[in-house]
Write a protein that binds this DNA or RNA. Structure first.
Length: 986
RNA sequence: GGGCGCUUAGCUCAGUUGGUUAGAGCGUCUGCUUUACACGCAGAAGGUCUGGGGUUCGAGUCCCUAAGCGCCCACCA
């Protein structure tokens, strides 16, 4: 009779093997397209997360694994809740870090440094390397089960982001918030670049501390090599010891001869510190630099950017810092100027956060972001960047979890100095600034690698227009103007920065219309015959004339436009007008001119021969190889040179939340998904990244980049040590996934972990969660063996006490889990579910199922709903079980809807069931206590409580080895007191 | 020099706004081929919540204070 029934039952393998499922399931998800919210027909509020982009060179480490686990949890949860969920992935080019990696690799393999290769070749090598590692890290992100939308994947160096970077830079420059100035900066010799203040780390170091006789005054220093030219002594105005010297000056026998020293009083000198007197070195100390500016002291560099003493250091010139220190000390000793040496001095050595080399403060001309400079925004009062960024958090537009980081953020922001954003490395966004080599004027303009677009859109309309023969000096008529406006609006979002127009009337008129709509300046070139050498096009033409006199003479007219080989262009462009967007001096330029000039330009640019030109077929998608050089706005010189430097990597990442969604420009993605819902990242990059995103978003959009910041802690090893390559204690997440499965790894980083607190991770912990994953597997396996399961969305009618209990419990658990997830208490949510699944559902309810028989509906309901609740935590096993159990018709678990019709809460049944549990536990205890042989049955009865048949059956069958016997009341051997009744056992 | 965090069972950690008897996992001990799972089942032992003081009817939780550990920030020459 049961045969037909058995036929439906599924038998799953005894243990869950993640390796057999994970990659296949990920592929199914990817193929389904559901990671992309456009493919979800959800109308609800959007939910979006910008994935903190891992370094493009890196391999996945546990820090990434944590962020992926948490972000995927949120993404999957909200997707199940029916929100349009976008989790946007990407990679960071990580300028210095990446360049260092590649430099090291190349030096090891080929023994050359980056200068041996040259910029172009070196960049080629870096990009090659990055392309490889980018795909590695992507595969690893996928292995974690991350449900991010790969169709929107971005890279900080891709075209769109580069555009955003330039846009931000230019806007800030125009607002006076980016300036170039000579200031003291942190300089790393090894990396050969500046660093931002927060890119400098401090290491405590025991250094000898020298007390030196500087004339009548003793000064202390840990760095005698910087003291060569010191000639100002600072003392506190109230310091009795030195009062008599204040304002005086005198000759001092010093390192390199006699110096004229003066004594200045300033409260910055602390009476208690050292000897109370200090000499200052304006060029190599931030404090001294400020003092020097305050009092107008001379700033002399004695250490150069190469780490060697400069010519100013006299006979020590050319020595590196270490050598100089030795030599100078020797000199001081010889002259008897060393008073004493303290060898136990603890010095805070500043080192580069990327390579650990000592960082030297030195004056240098760099680009800075002015964080304290008031500027006026449209419709707003004057405000500073710093104030904007502070207000966002102060006004609780941005919530930070855990809250204590609000104070940390505010403190950092309040003390932020102008941000040095230029780096002397090659890998990164080149600064969009050009300097005139003649008058030294800087010009800041947008650029990006551009393709010739030849107006590929809307050309049909243009083709309708009859060709106007000959005269280009006829003004445009109304219908033409209309067409040109139309064209202009098409080109509007194309990031065109400059329009170059031929001087001919129609072209100029057209250019004016473009300029009006696109809001870009026009450069009107003179007539060809009037061109002069000073402009670039003039130069081009002149060269052309010289090198190809025949061609120039005969072909540079619109007759060329009629040549047969030119047919294709002719078909695509209005005859008297070519509009072409090219990369011009690095900026995107729209050229409005007539065909002949355009063709000539293209020909020049591509370096074609005359023969090739005659056979020329326009190619529409190839980027131009040539950068046109524009002329200086101030002096007209064409000798413009782009700044060699690149931008701080954090400059581009600070735009990440919106640059990835299409900014600049008003894209649908930007308006839909920004501000993003949550920024989830480690607290260690609160300053580097989170703070800067708030700052830049406030500036660029006048908006917050995210509503909530969730900061997770750092992963440590079993001993609580930071994981590091040198210690070799790093756990490879990929290895752990192979060993225990991605789900287990994810659980181990979510349960028992609280935001902002570091936590330890080790094999046994992951193995524990692997066990749990397998438990869930077996719960479903068991259910499948006993009955035929189906997806049930509406809670079934409970029949027995156990049914009522488990449904009521499930209801409470589902509700609590929902609340906990929404309040970012992921650990508690997971713990609650874990406990319910294992210790209520499996330990009690499934055991009772074995007694009470088939539970098709209740198990169907519980399992289908429980898999949803677990899915954000462990997507693979839940999806595997869902599909194994419910088959294809049920669809993918990833797009089911979160349980909403929860069973009724039944507190009365819960209490009743709890007392049944208590009785069972007492009976089991009793057996265990007296070590009763399992074959021996005990008898029990109750005083003050009446059991029904069902309860009696459960109690006796649930491995208590007990049977109900009311007659034992007189001769019981153990009595257990409960609140309302007693249990008697015999 | 400022600021912050941590100190809860042998180990690793939870404990939301103060509320019955302080929880989990691992480990330990005892016993189990039980219609799923030994990656398992049934039990057990183990905590004066770092010390001291205070507020309160009531404190792991709030306040003060001391100590140890750790982190972040800072211009000690």
């Amino acid at each position: 009779m049961e045969l037909g029934f058995y036929f439906f039952m599924k038998e799953l393998p005894k243990a869950y093997s993640p390796q057999n499922y994970e990659s296949g399931i990920y592929k199914q998800w990817e193929d389904s397209g559901f990671f992309n919210p456009d493919n979800l027909n959800y109308q609800g509020e959007p939910f979006s997360i910008s994935m903190p982009p891992p370094n493009a060179t890196g391999i996945l480490h546990l820090g990434h694994a944590v962020m992926l686990a948490i972000q995927d949890l949120m993404s999957r949860y909200w997707r199940l809740r029916g929100r349009r969920t976008l989790w946007l992935p990407g990679e960071d080019h990580a300028a210095i870090a990446t360049q260092n990696v590649v430099e090291k690799k190349l030096y090891k393999e080929e023994g050359k440094n980056r200068f041996d290769y040259g910029r172009e070749e070196f960049m080629h090598r870096v990009n090659e390397f990055v392309n490889n590692s980018r795909s590695t890290i992507k595969d690893q992100i996928k292995a974690m089960g991350a449900s991010c939308d790969w169709s929107r994947e971005r890279y900080t160096l891709d075209e769109g982001l580069s555009r955003a970077v330039k846009e931000a830079f230019i806007r800030m420059y125009n607002d006076g918030l980016i300036y170039r100035g000579k200031r003291i900066v942190n300089w790393c010799y090894r990396c050969g670049t500046t660093l931002a203040d927060d890119e400098v780390e401090y290491k405590e170091q025991k250094t000898p501390f020298y007390y030196l006789k500087y004339g009548p005054i003793i000064i202390g220093t840990a760095r005698p090599e910087t003291k060569v030219l010191d000639k100002v002594i600072i003392v506190h105005p109230d310091d009795e010891r030195y009062k008599k010297y204040i304002g005086t000056s005198f000759d001092v026998p010093w390192i390199d001869g006699i110096v004229r020293a003066q004594v200045v009083a300033d409260k910055i000198a602390k009476i208690e510190t050292g000897t109370g007197a200090m000499t200052i070195t304006p060029a190599h100390s931030f404090v001294d630099f400020e003092l020097a500016q305050k009092y107008g002291f001379e700033i002399v560099e004695i250490i150069g950017p190469d780490g060697k003493m400069t010519q100013n250091a006299g006979k020590f010139a050319g020595l590196n810092v270490k050598e100089a220190r030795v030599a100078i000390l020797e000199e001081l000793q010889n002259k008897g100027l060393v008073e004493r040496i303290d060898n136990d001095y603890i010095h805070n050595l500043s080192v580069c956060y990327r390579c650990g080399t000592a960082v030297e403060p030195l004056p240098s001309e760099q680009w800075f972001v002015a964080v304290d400079k008031p500027f006026r925004r449209r419709f707003f009062k004057k405000i500073t960047l710093k104030k904007m960024a502070l207000a966002a958090v102060k006004e609780e537009r941005i919530k930070i979890i855990p809250e204590r980081f609000i104070k940390v953020y505010e403190h950092w922001m309040n003390n932020l100095h102008d941000w040095c954003i230029s780096r002397q490395i090659w890998f990164g966004h080149r600064i969009p600034a050009w300097q005139c080599q003649d008058c030294k004027e800087w010009q800041v303009i947008a650029s990006r690698p551009t393709k010739i677009i030849f107006s590929r859109h809307g050309l049909t309309d243009w083709n309708k227009k009859e060709r106007i023969q000959g005269d280009t000096n006829i003004p445009l008529d109304e219908s033409e103007i209309e067409l040109i406006y139309k064209k202009a609006y098409e080109l509007k979002n194309n990031d065109i920065q400059v329009i170059i127009s031929s001087p001919l009337m129609r072209a100029r008129q057209t250019a004016n219309i473009f300029a009006e709509v696109i809001k870009a300046p026009i450069i009107v070139e003179k007539r060809i015959k009037e061109r002069y050498y000073g402009t670039f096009e003039g130069k081009l033409v002149a060269e052309l004339k010289q090198d190809h006199p025949d061609y120039y003479k005969n072909k540079l007219s619109y007759h060329v436009a009629e040549a047969e080989s030119y047919q294709q262009i002719k078909q695509r462009l209005i005859p008297w007008l070519s509009e072409v967007v090219i990369k011009f001096q690095g900026q995107k330029v729209l050229i409005v001119t007539h065909n002949a000039i355009m063709r000539t330009l293209k020909w020049m640019i591509e370096g074609g021969t005359e023969k090739e030109l005659s056979e020329f077929k326009p190619r529409f998608d190839e980027p131009l190889q040539y950068e046109l050089i524009g002329s200086c706005k101030k002096c007209g010189s064409w000798r413009m040179k782009q700044d060699e430097d690149t931008l701080d990597t954090w400059f581009s990442s600070s735009l990440w939340t919106f640059s990835t969604l299409g900014w600049p420009g008003k894209t649908k993605d930007l308006s839909t998904y920004h501000p993003t819902s949550v920024m989830e990242t480690g607290y260690d990059i609160l300053f580097f990244w989170v703070a800067r995103m708030i700052l830049m978003s406030a500036y660029c959009l006048g908006d917050i980049p995210f509503r909530t910041v969730y900061l997770h802690g750092l992963v440590r090893d079993k001993q609580g040590r930071k994981m590091s390559k040198s210690l070799g204690n790093g756990i490879d997440p990929i290895e752990m996934i192979g060993k225990y499965g991605a789900d287990a790894l994810r659980l181990s980083m979510i349960i028992g972990v609280t935001p902002g607190n570091d936590f330890r991770l080790y094999d046994e912990k992951i193995a524990g969660y692997r066990n749990f994953v397998n438990k869930l597997w077996n719960i479903v396996r068991f259910a499948n063996l006993t009955t035929e399961l189906k997806v049930m969305e509406v809670p079934p009618e409970p029949k027995t006490l156990a049914d009522k209990w488990i449904l009521s419990r499930f209801s409470k658990v589902a509700d609590l889990v929902t609340k906990k997830i929404e309040s970012y208490s992921f650990s508690e949510a997971g713990e609650t579910l874990y406990d319910f699944t294992w210790h209520e559902l499996a330990d009690w309810y499934l055991e009772i199922t074995k007694i009470e028989g088939r539970k098709q509906e209740i198990l169907s309901y519980l399992i289908s709903q429980l898999l949803k609740l677990w899915h954000p935590f462990m997507p693979f096993v839940t999806e595997a079980l869902w599909q194994e159990t419910f088959g294809n018709q049920a669809g993918l678990l990833i797009v089911q809807l979160w349980p909403k019709n929860l069973p009724a809460i039944d507190n009365k049944s819960e209490i009743e069931f709890t007392s049944v549990q208590d009785i069972i536990i007492s009976l089991r205890n009793y057996r265990a206590e007296i070590k009763l042989d399992k074959k021996i049955k005990v008898k029990f009865c109750l005083v003050g409580k009446i059991l029904n048949k069902n309860e009696e059956m459960i109690i006796s069958d649930l491995r208590t080895g007990a049977e109900y016997d009311s007659s034992i009341a007189e001769k019981y051997s153990k009595k257990v007191d409960f609140k309302d009744f007693n249990l008697l056992i015999s």
